[in-house]
C-alpha cells in the first residue's frame, strides 16, 4: 500500500518537478548546397538537392542511465541526401539507414566513436540495416557511392537533448533538478557550455551567443 502510494506520488509530482530550459544558439552561416558528381552517369539525376540549414544540438551533459531497451532512430537516404543531416541520439541507440532511392548507397563511418560499413543493399531488404551506437562521440557518415553525401550522428550520454530550429531557438523539457552543464554543439569545432542550477519545476532561459 505504501509502495503504491509512493509510486502515485512520483507519477503526479515528477512532471511538476521537471525543469525546462529554452533559449537561442547563434548559428553559423549556411553552407553552399553540394553538387552531385554525375560525370559518368549515363542517366542524369539533376535537380536541386534539399538544403540542410545549420542547426545545433543542445544537451544537458550526462552521464545519465541508459535505457533498458535500445531506442531506434533512423537516417534516410533519400534523393541522394542523408535525412536528417544531423541526428543526436543517446548512447545505446540503434540507428537504421533505410535506402529510399532507386540506386545503391553505401553508408560508412571511419569515426573512432563508431567504425562501420554497411555495404550496398536494396531498398526492399529487411530488416533495414542498422548500427548500435554505444560510445559517446561524433560519428561522420558518408556514402561510398556518392561523395557529396555526408551526415553526423552525435552520440550523447544523456537523454536530455534537442535540435534547434533553423533560427537557433530550442526548448528542453522534463529536465532533472540539480546542478548541470548545458552544452550547445554547433559543429565539430565548436561546443559552447553554460552551467545551470535547475530547481524543481523551474523554467530557465539560456542563450548561446
Amino acid at each position: 500500500m505504501i509502495v503504491r502510494g509512493l509510486f502515485l506520488l512520483a507519477v503526479v509530482v515528477a512532471p511538476l518537478a521537471a525543469a525546462t530550459i529554452e533559449g537561442r544558439v547563434a548559428l553559423p552561416k549556411a553552407r553552399a548546397t553540394p553538387v552531385v558528381n554525375q560525370r559518368y552517369e549515363i542517366v542524369a539525376k539533376a535537380g536541386v538537392l534539399s538544403t540542410n540549414p545549420p542547426v545545433a544540438v543542445v544537451y544537458l551533459e550526462g552521464p545519465f542511465p541508459r535505457p533498458a531497451t535500445p531506442p531506434v532512430a533512423s537516417i534516410l537516404q533519400k534523393d541522394l541526401t542523408f535525412v536528417p543531416a544531423l541526428l543526436p541520439v543517446q548512447a545505446g541507440t540503434r540507428v537504421e539507414f533505410p535506402n529510399l532511392d532507386d540506386t545503391f548507397h553505401n553508408v560508412f563511418s571511419f569515426s573512432p566513436a563508431k567504425r562501420f560499413d554497411l555495404g550496398r543493399y536494396r531498398a526492399d531488404e529487411r530488416p533495414v540495416p542498422g548500427v548500435l551506437f554505444d560510445t559517446p562521440g561524433m560519428v561522420t557518415l558518408r556514402c561510398d557511392v556518392h561523395e557529396h553525401m555526408r551526415a553526423l550522428i552525435l552520440v550523447l550520454d544523456t537523454p536530455y537533448f534537442a535540435i534547434t530550429a533553423a533560427d537557433g531557438t530550442f526548448r528542453l523539457t522534463g529536465l532533472p533538478p540539480g546542478r548541470h552543464t548545458l552544452r550547445a554543439w554547433i559543429d565539430s569545432k565548436q561546443t559552447k557550455a553554460h552551467a545551470v542550477d535547475l530547481a524543481a519545476g523551474a523554467a530557465l532561459r539560456v542563450d548561446f551567443p
Binding site: 553538387v35 539533376a46 536541386v48
Partner: peptide, 16 residues
C-alpha cells in the same frame, strides 16, 4: 582537378 557545375535542374557541366 574536377569542376562539377549544376546550372538549374537541366544543365550540368564538368571538366577534368
Amino acid at each position: 582537378t574536377f569542376l562539377d557545375a549544376q546550372l538549374g535542374p537541366r544543365t550540368y557541366a564538368f571538366a577534368q
